[in-house]
C-alpha cells in the first residue's frame, strides 16, 4: 500500500514545482491513456452532459412554442406542489426506507449467494442453479405485476388456492397495507439477487487461489477462510456498489412499485407510495414536464449530498476505496 501511495503522489508533486507550460507537457505525457478515455469522455459529453442544461426546465413555465430557455422563469413554483399535499415527508421516508432495505438486504444476499456458489463443487448443480437464479431478471416489470396479481389475488390467486387446499383461510393481500413492504422487498430480492451476485462471484474468481490454499494449510476452517479472506476481498466491490446505489437513494424503482401495487389501490398507499409513483399520478392528469424535472432535481441534489458525505467518510476510513 505504501509504495502505491508514493506513486500516486509523485507526479503531482513534481508538477507543482514546474512552470505553466508543463500543462501541455503533462497532457502529452499522458496522451495514450487520455486517448483511451476519449471515447468514453465524448460519449458522456453527448448523452449525459449535453442534455443536462435542460434541468433548467424545472424553473420555467414550459411553453412548447418557445422552447425551454425562452419560457418564462418561475423560480421554485414547480416545486410547490410537492409540499402542498403534505405528503413530501412520507414519500421521502418511504423511498429512502425501501432503498436502504434494497441496498442492505440485497447486498447481503448477493454476497452470501456468491460465496456459497464458490464453495459448491458439483459443476452441474452450480451451472443450473446459477442459470435459474438469473431467470427473474428477464421478466419485465409489467409481467411481474401480472404474475403477482395471479398469485396473490383473493378469488383466484395461486396462493389462496393453495391455502384453501390445505384447509387454511384465504388471505386478503390487496387490502392489507402492512404486508406490502415485505412483498415488495421480497420481489426485489427475487429479481435482483441472481443478477447482482454475478458481480461478487466474478470478484471472488479474481481472488488468487494460492492465498486460500495457504490459509487452509495453516489450519483455517471454511468459516474462517470466508470471514478473513473472502469477505475482506469483496469489500472494495461492495463500496463501489454502495456508492452507486446511495446516489439514487431518493430515486425509486418505478416499474416495480407501479406494476406490483397498481395505479388505483389507494388502500396500499401509506406503505407503498414513493416519490416516483406520486409524480406519475400528478403527471397523468396534466402532463407537466416542468414538475417532473423539479422532482428529479430534488432527487439528484439529495443524492449528491449523500454520496459526497459517504465518499468523504470512506476517504477518511480507507482512502484507497473511495470513488474519487
Amino acid at each position: 500500500m505504501k509504495t502505491e501511495a508514493v506513486t500516486v503522489q509523485s507526479p503531482t508533486v513534481v508538477v507543482k514545482t514546474k512552470t505553466k507550460e508543463s500543462v501541455f507537457k503533462r497532457l502529452w505525457k499522458h496522451r495514450t491513456l487520455l486517448l483511451m478515455c476519449m471515447p468514453a469522455i465524448i460519449f458522456f459529453a453527448i448523452f449525459a452532459y449535453l442534455p443536462m442544461p435542460g434541468l433548467y426546465l424545472a424553473f420555467v413555465n414550459y411553453d412548447y412554442s418557445l422552447g425551454i430557455f425562452d419560457s418564462a422563469f418561475v423560480g421554485f413554483d414547480n416545486f410547490k406542489f410537492l409540499v402542498m399535499t403534505g405528503d413530501l415527508w412520507k414519500l421521502t421516508f418511504n423511498t429512502i426506507a425501501y432503498n436502504l432495505a434494497f441496498i442492505v438486504l440485497g447486498n447481503i444476499l448477493q454476497i452470501a449467494v456468491a460465496i456459497m456458489l464458490n464453495e459448491l463443487t458439483n459443476k452441474w448443480f452450480k451451472k443450473v442453479s446459477q442459470t435459474i437464479m438469473f431467470l427473474p431478471h428477464f421478466i419485465s416489470a409489467v409481467l411481474v405485476g401480472l404474475l403477482a396479481y395471479n398469485i396473490l389475488s383473493y378469488d383466484y390467486g395461486v396462493l389462496n388456492s393453495f391455502l384453501k387446499m390445505v384447509g387454511l383461510d384465504p388471505v386478503q393481500t390487496y387490502s392489507n397495507p402492512e404486508i406490502w413492504p415485505y412483498i415488495i422487498v421480497i420481489t426485489f430480492l427475487w429479481q435482483s439477487t441472481g443478477y447482482g451476485s454475478i458481480v461478487y462471484f466474478a470478484a471472488i474468481m479474481g481472488l488468487d487461489k494460492s492465498i486460500l490454499e495457504a490459509a487452509e494449510i495453516d489450519g483455517a476452517n471454511a468459516f474462517q477462510r470466508i470471514r478473513y479472506i473472502i469477505i475482506p476481498w469483496l469489500k472494495p466491490t461492495f463500496i463501489i456498489l454502495l456508492l452507486f446505489s446511495l446516489g439514487g437513494v431518493l430515486k425509486g424503482n418505478f416499474g416495480l412499485f407501479y406494476n406490483l401495487v397498481g395505479a388505483n389501490n389507494t388502500m396500499l398507499y401509506p406503505t407503498t407510495d414513493i416519490i416516483e409513483t406520486y409524480v406519475f399520478r400528478t403527471l397523468m392528469t396534466n402532463f407537466n414536464f416542468s414538475l417532473g424535472s423539479a422532482v428529479s432535481l430534488y432527487q439528484s441534489v439529495f443524492g449528491l449530498v449523500i454520496v459526497l458525505t459517504a465518499n468523504w467518510i470512506i476517504r477518511k476510513v480507507s482512502p484507497e476505496n473511495s470513488l474519487f
Binding site: 458522456f44 452532459y49 442534455p51 443536462m52 435542460g54 434541468l55 426546465l57 425551454i68 454520496v307
Partner: peptide, 11 residues
C-alpha cells in the same frame, strides 16, 4: 452523470 441527468424532454 449517474447523479444528474437532463431528464426526459432534453434527452
Amino acid at each position: 452523470t449517474t447523479l444528474f441527468s437532463g431528464g426526459l424532454v432534453p434527452f
